[in-house]
């Protein structure tokens, strides 16, 4: 009997779902970007740790060279 009223109610409901879909899509994009940033930050930390390890390796190597009586500065600057 009230077809138009029902139609407008359905259209309103559909609009609500469309907004929900847009919001969900936006939240997904933001979340994805956030995790990408977190990943990059972790990669930076990992590279720093790797550099620390390389420094440690260099120190050990220098110590070894010193024990052998070699000049370490010339060796690394070459």
């Amino acid at each position: 009997m009230f077809v138009q009223r029902d139609r407008y109610a359905k259209l309103e409901e559909a609009a609500g779902y469309q907004i929900a879909a847009e919001i969900a899509s936006l939240v997904a994009d933001v979340s994805s970007a956030y995790y990408a940033i977190v990943q990059q930050q972790k990669l930076v930390n990992m590279t720093r740790q790797s550099m620390e390890l390389s420094k440690k390796r260099k120190e050990i190597s220098d110590a070894k060279r010193l024990r052998r009586g070699l000049n370490t500065t010339n060796c690394w600057e070459r």
């Binding site: 899509s25 997904a28 995790y35 990669l43 390890l53």
Partner: peptide, 30 residues
């Protein structure tokens, strides 16, 4: 070790991506 750490980060990122996708499809992403 560097390679393993990179692989772990990549797999963690992919896991998060698939979690987001799963939530998006199921409509439970808020």
């Amino acid at each position: 070790q560097i390679e393993s750490e990179t692989n772990l980060l990549v797999s963690q990122f992919r896991a998060k991506q698939s979690e987001i996708e799963l939530k998006l499809i199921s409509g439970s992403l808020t």
